[in-house]
Nucleic acid binder design. Sequence first.
RNA 1: GGCGACAUAGCCAAGCGGUAAGGCAGAGGACUGCAAAUCCUCUAUUCCCCGGUUCGAUUCCGGGUGUCGCCUCCA
Length: 466
Amino acid sequence: MIKMFNDLTKKKDEFIPLESGKVGMYVCGPTVYDYFHIGNARAFTMFDLIRRYLEYRGYDVTYVQNFTDIDDKMINRANDLGITVRELAERYIKEYFDDADALGIHRADHHPKATEHIVEIIDIVDRLVKKGYAYEMDGDVYFDAHKFDEYGKLSHQNLEELESGARVDVDERKHNPIDFALWKKQKPGEPAWESPWGMGRPGWHIECSAMASKYLGDTIDIHAGGADLVFPHHENEIAQSEAANGKPFANYWLHNGYLNIDGEKMSKSLGNFFTVRDIRKKYDPEVVRFFLMSAHYRNPLNFSEEQLISAKNGLDRLYTTLNNLEFAKESAKEDHPVTEDRVMEKINEHENHFIESMDDDFNTADAVSALFMFARDMNIFVKEGMTVKAIDRAVGKLKAWGDLLGILQRSGEESGVNPDVEALIEKRNQARKERNWAEADRIRAELSGMGITIEDTPQGTRIVSR
RNA sequence: GGCGACAUAGCCAAGCGGUAAGGCAGAGGACUGCAAAUCCUCUAUUCCCCGGUUCGAUUCCGGGUGUCGCCUCCA
C-alpha cells in the first residue's frame, strides 16, 4: 500500500487512484526563459522518481509536465535578447531537455505548451465568466475569488487572512486584491491572441487548469510541484478548475521542499542559484540526481559543493560494488561458497526494506540505505567467492534498483581495452613478480599520468575507471 | 500581522511510543610489497529547551527558543 503526504488533507493518505491500476499525474513545469536551476531540478527529478516508482508498482501512469511559454518573464527576456517569445521558448525547451535527459528524467507522456492551448484556455475562461465566477474589466478577465467558497483550502488560509497580508496591488480595478487574472489584455508589442474579450494572452494559472483537463480529465489523481506553488498558483488552479467543472480538480497534492543555499531558498529572484548546466561542467549529473534523493522530497535540502562531493563518494561506493562483482565473475567458479540462494536471501531482506520505504511517502533517503546495506553484503560475498549465477543475480538486482531510481546504469568497463595499457600492466606485473617495486611503482605512475588508475586485487590487476 | 514547516553526531540524513538506520568525513585494526578497494571496530549517554501524558517519549500533548518559508514572479 502506497501512502503519500497530501497537502490537501495535511496527512499521509493511502493512495487510491480514480481508476484501478491507472494514474493521471500533472507536474508544473518550467517557464522556458532560461536554463533551469538545481532547485527546479529537484522538483522535476523527484516527481520523475515518484512516477517511476508508481510504474514499478504496476500503475499505468500518464504523466504530464507543461512548459510555460508565455508570460511577463518570457516577454521581457525575449525583448532583452532581441528575439521573439517563440524563439526564446524554442531555445530553452531544447535546453530543458538537454539537462533533464542528463539528469535521467524520463520524458513526460505530454509536454503541453500554453501557447498551443489558447483555444482550451479561452474555453475555460469563457465558462467561468458565464457561470459568474469571473468578470471582465476593459479587456482583462479576473477570477472572483470570493465567489469560490472553498478558496484557500489547499494553503489552509481563508480569504481574510490572505488579503490582510496581500501587498499593495497597482491594479485598482479588481473587485478584491486576491482576485487574479485569467486573461490579460494585450499591451503594445506583446504577443496576443483573439478572444471574446479582445486581443490578449492567458494569465499564468489558467494554462495548467486547461491543459490538465485536456490530457487527464477534469479530476486528476496527482498534482505536483514545488512548495512555492501552493499559493497562489495551485490554490488558483483549484478555484478555476473546480468552479468551471464542478468536480474536484486533483485528489492528491504533492509538493517538494525547497533546495536551499546556505539555509536560504534558492530562486531566480534572489539570484543565488546554480543552473544545472553549470553544475554539469564539474559533476556528473548522476551525482546530482543521487544527491537530490539523499533527502526526503518534502524536506528542505541544502545544496553545497561539499554535499555534492559526499554524494559522489557515496555513489562511487555503489559503483565499486558493481565493479567488484563484475570483476569477480572472471574468476568465478561453480564450487564457490556463495550460491544464488544466498544472494536471493539478501535480496529479499533488502527489497522489503526498499519497498516499505518507498511506499511510505517515497522515502528515497531510507530506500537508498537498503542499497548500501546490500552493497556491503555483496562486498563480503565477493571475498568469500561467488558462483557466476550468484553474481548475475546480485548485479541484476543492484541495476534494477538503480534503474528504478535513475542511477547506476553506467557500465563498469566503459572504454575498450587499450593494447598499450595492457602491455604496461603486463610489464608491471612482471616487475612485481620479480619484486622490483621501484619499476612497478614507476609504471603505475606512468599509467596514472595517462589518466588510468589501477588496483591490485587477489584476482589480478584491474583498471578502475574513476 | 496571518499561516506553515523544520530542529537527530564533524557534515548530510532516516526513524516518529519500546530504548538511536544509512552515507560522507575521521581514528584504529585486518588484508596488501606499497597504494587503492574491501572488511571489522570506534565516533549521539540533554535526539533544541521546559513542562505534561505514559510502565516507558527522539517519537504524543502544551509552552518556549531558534532557523527557514508562504502571504509578490518563482520548483
